[in-house]
Each structure stands twice: as C-alpha cells, then as structure tokens.
Design a protein around this nucleic acid. Structure first.
Ligand code: MN
Ligand code: MN
Ligand code: MN
Ligand code: MN
Lengths: 223, 223
DNA sequence: GGTCATTTTTAGACAAGTCTAAATATTTTT
DNA sequence: AAAAATATTTAGACTTGTCTAAAAATGACC
C-alpha cells in the first residue's frame, strides 16, 4: 500500500510527535531522516496529497489520523520483530534494530497477528519501549530514568533511552541488561554519577550520561 | 548489496536453469517475471555488467557462479521463511508464498543462520521443495510424482509441483497434506485418474491433472 | 519598518526500473 | 535464397526518490 520510504517518513514523524513536538519542521525532519530539506519538501507534499499528514508551506506538518495509524502500525511491527529476534532467535539487543528496520515493511496483517500471538503478546520490546497494540494504542511507559532515583532504592532495569549499539554493548559489557537488579548505594553530587550494586553482588559506578539513559522501576512491581 | 528486483530476476533465472534450460531467452524470462521483454533486456544488461550472468545479445543469458550464489541464497531464504510461517506461525501452505516473496529480501546472514537453527535445519519447505544449504548445495528431490506409481503401493505425500493457492486449497479440502498416507487402489486407464485410500480410511478419486502434481515416496522411507 | 540570517521551497538533474512503439536481428517458411 | 513471422533490442518517456543550486519566504535585530 505505502512504499518503504513513505512508511519511514511517517514513522519518523510519529516519533517526533511522541517526543513532544506538535508541528514538525522541514529541517528537523530532514535531520531525523538523514536527508536534505528539499527531499523532505517533495515527500511531505506527496504524503499530504495522500491525506497522511497536514502540511502548511513554510510552517511544517502534522500527521492525520490516517498517517498516525500507518506510522503506529510500522512502529508496532518494528518492535514485535525486535522482540522476536531477541526472544526467539537469540540476538542481543544491540543487533536487532537494523534488521527490524527491514522487517517492519513486510506487508501482512496475519503475519503480525500470528507473530504477536507466538511471542505471547509482549508489552515491551528488548529496549523497554512499549509495543503499540493492535488497536493503535501506545501505552505510556511506566518506567523512569535511573537519575531520578534516591539511595537505597531497589530497582530493576526495564529499558534504555539511548538505542545505539555502542551504548547497548557498553551496558552488556558490565552485565547490565533487562531484568538486572540495581541497588543505589550513593549519588555523587559533584558529577551526578551513581555508585550501585548490580544483581546483589557487583559494585560499580555509572556516569550521569549512562544513568540518564537507563529506564528502571521498583523491584516489587511487575511490568 | 543487490536490489529486490535484481534478486528476483536472479532467482527466476535460477529456477529456469533448475527446470532444465541452459540458456534463458529474453521472452521466456519476461514471461516468468511477468514483465515486458524490453524491461528484461535492460535488466539483463545491468546484471551482466555486475558479472552476475553472461549475456549474448539475441541469444540469451546464463548465471555466473556469482549470480548463482546470490540466487541460491535468495531461494534458501524463501524456503526457510515459508517453513517458519507454516511450522512456527501456523500458516497453511497456500498462504505463505506471497509473504516469503517479501521476506526473502531481508539482508542479514546471521538472521538466516539463526532461523535455520531455530527451525532445526529443515531439509524441505512446506511444499516439499529442497531447502538449499548454507554451502549453496541443493539436494536432488528424493520424491516422485503420484502418476509414476503402481496399484498396491503404500505412499506418503511429500510435496507438490503446482504451488498455486487454488491447487493447495483443493488438496487441503480433501485432507491431503504433507505426511498424508496414500494406498493406490486402482489406476483407471481411460482417464489416468487414480482411486486411492487416504490415511487408511477415506476412499477417493484423483484426476491425472492432480495426480501428476503430487510428490510422494514409499511409506517405509524417512525423508 | 527595513536589513540580515535562516528556513523552506522551487528548478533542474540524475539513477532505477518500467512501459510503448519502432527498429533490427534471427528463424521459419516457401 | 528471399519473404514472412517471430524474437530481441533500442529510443524515448514516465515514476519514485534523491540531490545541488538558486529563489523566495520567514523571523530576528536594530
Ligand atoms: Mn529499533
Ligand atoms: Mn527497540
Ligand atoms: Mn514459494
Ligand atoms: Mn515453497
């Protein structure tokens, strides 16, 4: 129905909306899509012609409900495939994004329904991001970042905000993954780094840059 | 590395080679690709330029070893994905071809290796076609068609030659699927139809048109 | 309110893949 | 061996998505 390129534009616009921006400017979109502003203008016009977004020249664009539904569906497919790659095919969380970028464009409603069922209707992908449901609803994340915590908090790692392979490999190297238990020992005021105990045995220090990209929740809760 | 279109051309040429044709003519390829001869000429020239096939103007083309390896890899991916869809996601054998046509172009060696392992290194796809192995070898089919059998033969259905959804649904309607047991009761000379016993309980008659598209082997053998 | 910097759009070009129509080569028929 | 039929290639055009360079609109500053 829609080309890979169209779906990628729509998904990127959706993510910018979800990031809190109402109207998406041409330059911001060009930056996000890693392309030129002139290319974006051309594509935006085409998408507007297909009623996928509202476009005001020199102002920017906003997804219509139609555009939003296409974008959410693509995001849902992306995150379900990432879950499949990690849970079923033993990939690590830093390897799956590129492959999911391809798989998210496979067209078959039944395929995604069956995949969802096979995976047990997961709520979150391997990076802790919510998987949009079949009805298009995207749950608000129940997690918070590690830099919003206090000493003595007992926490579980539930996701990350930075999705780059470098960051994910860095965490894996220290044994930090989804489900890891963290106890806050001390927050160092001078550099906002945190001393903590990982899985009740290993003590380590994480810089503020790392800490603000880790999503956690309290131990007693069940996601 | 190669575009979807290039991979589709290469895979189609490979199948024509496997069907026994040494040199593929422009018109035959156009027919197989459901496109025009002029488009084929353009594409063949491009593929020849990339050393994927040898092309002699007005004569036809033959895959090089490089072209063959790309084509075999695409065919392997197609058949592994079809197996995944049927074995893991509960699709029926008449629903998977279209989806596999998309999935076969996903680029990731590791993905296919992991999928193969997850599926238990299957030798045949849901239609009984051999799955090319990682080294590029395609096993000769150990099966023969139902019209090459004699009365009293005890057989197991192992595949089909006609892959159209219509034919596959027709077989499913009568309960004929991979693994079904067949006993030949009688071969009717006047129309070459066959009376047989399905799974030791149901008697039925299959036309020659159906019979020559069903692949079987003797009951005692294990594929 | 006018100038300047920035943002956005337009104009024109290109690559991939396709098509129709016309030209040319090959094969078959006489 | 020439004519007719068939197969193949070429020429020119179109679509999608991209780019660079130039033009136009917008917003900031004085
Ligand atoms: Mn991702
Ligand atoms: Mn993710
Ligand atoms: Mn198939
Ligand atoms: Mn098949």
């Amino acid at each position: 129905m829609y080309s890979f390129t169209e779906e990628n534009y729509l998904k990127t616009i959706l993510k910018l909306h979800l990031g809190g921006t109402q109207v998406i400017s041409t330059n911001v979109l060009a930056e996000s899509m890693q392309t030129k502003a002139s290319s974006v203008t051309d594509m935006i016009k085409k998408l507007a012609g297909k009623k996928l977004l509202k476009y005001e020249p020199y102002r920017g664009c906003i997804l219509t409900n139609l555009g939003k539904s296409v974008a959410v569906s693509t995001l849902r497919k992306h995150r379900l495939w990432e879950t499949f790659l990690v849970n079923t095919l033993s990939f690590s969380w830093d390897e799956v994004h590129e492959i999911a970028e391809q798989l998210e464009h496979i067209q078959s409603d039944k395929l995604i329904r069956q995949l969802d069922a096979f995976l047990g209707f997961p709520k979150h992908d391997p990076h802790g991001d919510p998987i949009p449901q079949l009805d298009g609803k995207i749950a608000a994340s129940p997690f918070f970042t590690l830099d919003q915590t206090k000493p003595q908090n007992q926490l579980v790692v539930c996701g990350v905000l930075n999705h780059t392979p470098d960051f994910l490999k860095y965490l894996s190297k220290y044994g930090i993954e989804i489900g890891s238990k963290l106890s806050i020992l001390q927050i160092n005021a001078f550099d906002r780094s945190i001393d903590l105990l990982l899985n009740e045995k290993q003590q380590l220090n994480l810089s503020n840059e790392v800490v603000k990209n880790i999503l956690v929740q309290f131990t007693h809760q069940v996601a």
